[in-house]
Nucleic acid binder design. Sequence first.
DNA 1: GTTACTGTACCGTCTGGACGGGTTACTACA
DNA 2: TGTAGTAACCCGTCCAGACGGTACAGTAAC
Lengths: 199, 199
Amino acid sequence: MPPAPVAREKVLEAFATILVTQGERAATLEAVAAQAGVSKGGLLYHFASKQALVDGLLGRLVDLAAADVIEMRSAPAGPVDHFLRTSAQSDTDFDRVYVAVTRLPQDTYPQARAALDEAHRGWQAAVLDAVGDPVLARAVVLMGDGLYLEASRTGDWDADSRSRRRTDAHVDELLALVDRISGATGAPADGRSEGATAG
Amino acid sequence: MPPAPVAREKVLEAFATILVTQGERAATLEAVAAQAGVSKGGLLYHFASKQALVDGLLGRLVDLAAADVIEMRSAPAGPVDHFLRTSAQSDTDFDRVYVAVTRLPQDTYPQARAALDEAHRGWQAAVLDAVGDPVLARAVVLMGDGLYLEASRTGDWDADSRSRRRTDAHVDELLALVDRISGATGAPADGRSEGATAG
DNA sequence: GTTACTGTACCGTCTGGACGGGTTACTACA
DNA sequence: TGTAGTAACCCGTCCAGACGGTACAGTAAC
């Protein structure tokens, strides 16, 4: 086997990072290559065009989203806890890629919208199974999106998460709120959403 | 008085529209001028540089945000109703400008983050006054952001809002949910958030 | 005469993409 | 063991076009 294509992963990661921190404008092939520590020619070897680069990022998103839903459903503290807690983070691969795709123009890349919708369907279904009520499930998913947006505003995308604890406390309160509602509205189907909310 | 500077408004509106529909990349001076029906020279007459154009958009955002908070606080159905309902829309000036600024790279334009934060503070305060509970207020504002993100994904930015009714129904359910919680948690301070939620 | 533009022409820089190398890892055959 | 071949991986450079911005001459309303 020839040398493992290490550049491909690095390029995708760099693309997402630049999209999030500096925006679509700054995400040029050269800038991405430089961030990845790869030459421009090396980048173009793996992704023959910018469209191919975007497609690669979208593929990565659907993979990570599928993995995230599986992780959600088997999370010890329940899907809701896992979902909201990770939504508030900004230091994992998945968060970075998700927000990166959010920054892409949805009109120019219709597949970006499709990928985001697919991720949402997975979340929605998992949360619904946990809380029972469709309206509450929708509210939870919306709050998750709000947390993503908040995290993307607040920044901290490469710093070593100094403000994590503060954000986590806020999420704890939200989880407690969801627990109260879900307890009052109807019995949860299977998700143990009251496990580790640290009241 | 010489002819009113009508081009200035059109340029700002065009800038926001292109940012939302086609992204930061496509928002070149020439493209903005063309979308506004103005010559490039005419655009540069009002905004001497791209930075000035961005500043103009940010100024417009803070103005519209301030007006929106006032409108919220005097809305017949209460601040929460007004907030969530307008968050789900995508056909008003304010929504377009808000999402447009969201699309700007926050690292490159720090004032964009400041403007967005200012808007959030206004919303948060108004919602808090209405629902009483800080955690619930935070949840509502997060849901509003989620609705903005959803609207920016779903599109409908220049179509004449065919799917408005469907979206509105979903918001009705969310408002009913918020009413139930706010009733159970504590008495609202002054906002009549149970007025027109169409239960 | 000032304000509010239109229109064209131009400059320096950056961008996506093409292209021609070059290195590494593995296989084929003797 | 040697050695030739192949293919995946990656580098560095080049170019036409687009970009932000400048300049300037002209037009029309007030």
